[in-house]
Design a protein around this nucleic acid. Structure first.
Lengths: 138, 138
DNA sequence: GCTTGACCTTCCAATGATGGCAAGGTTTAG
DNA sequence: CTAAACCTTGCCATCATTGGAAGGTCAAGC
């Protein structure tokens, strides 16, 4: 299998497969005489693992760890759970931050008439004019 | 006021003030004889506006638009509302995506014993082994 | 056998927002 | 006069990903 097939079979772009190779996330691929990279089913399996982990928002550093745990038959599930839990905390923090912003923005938008007149609580708030707060973007 | 004072007065780092200048988000600052950038209260006001907009997650492109609307006394509030609404939709989509991931991860973590044994539903799921799904990371 | 198009190779650059460092000029207080 | 604190420009790094350019390889059709 060449890199193009590996890409469509795994859902990881050829570009990224090469990138993962140079950054050491995956080992160097075998090469045909032509110099083309060759991939087998095991490689595809690994690439799919990586794609799923990326979709789940793990960083490449975390994925590196996950891959080594995956390949270690002796791994304690504890380590995987810790890594995943750390990532989950991260996600929850980011979600909370975004929600805070979204709520504030929702309030401001609700109070903006949205017509042709210039008066606008959204701009007023961004400008720091607190006379009509309602969901501060601070 | 020099750039350092402008930075601490506005909450925007000196680095970013220069960056905003080179990218055209703010006009080129006046210069003292020495070559130092000079800032007045209006500049600070603008920088604070930018900082709040960034905190609210607006991109620099959106902030550019917001700034021009802010400075246009004739703007229709409609335009501001549309821009903010588009950003809010963005935020809500990102929140929803993150929540989907967080939920799936929560399930998987809940089902991982986290002990010293190697068996782990988190890795199984990432590997594509659906025998014990519960929150797919797909 | 040759051409064409699809595929592959490497390398370099850009994204967006920010931080960091380096080498050098300026200002200000002591 | 000197030292500290500030400023200048410029370049590099982050993170994951995409894009392009220039060139080599392969398979199919004529």
């Amino acid at each position: 299998m060449n890199i193009g097939q590996a890409a469509s079979a795994s859902g990881v772009s050829a570009k990224m497969i090469r990138h993962y190779e140079t950054t050491g996330l995956i080992p160097k691929a075998a090469r045909a005489y032509s110099g083309y990279r060759r991939y087998d089913e095991r490689d595809i399996h690994t690439l799919r693992f990586i794609r799923r982990a990326r979709t789940a928002g793990f960083s490449t550093a975390q994925i590196k760890k996950l891959l080594s745990l995956w390949q270690d038959r002796q791994r304690p599930a504890r380590e995987v759970k810790e890594l995943a839990s750390a990532h989950l905390s991260d996600l929850q923090m980011r979600i909370a931050e975004l929600q805070t912003i979204a709520h504030a923005l929702t309030q401001l938008i609700a109070h903006c008439h949205g017509g042709e007149r210039p008066q606008c609580p959204i701009l007023d708030n961004l400008a720091g004019d607190d006379s009509a707060p309602r969901g501060e973007l601070r």
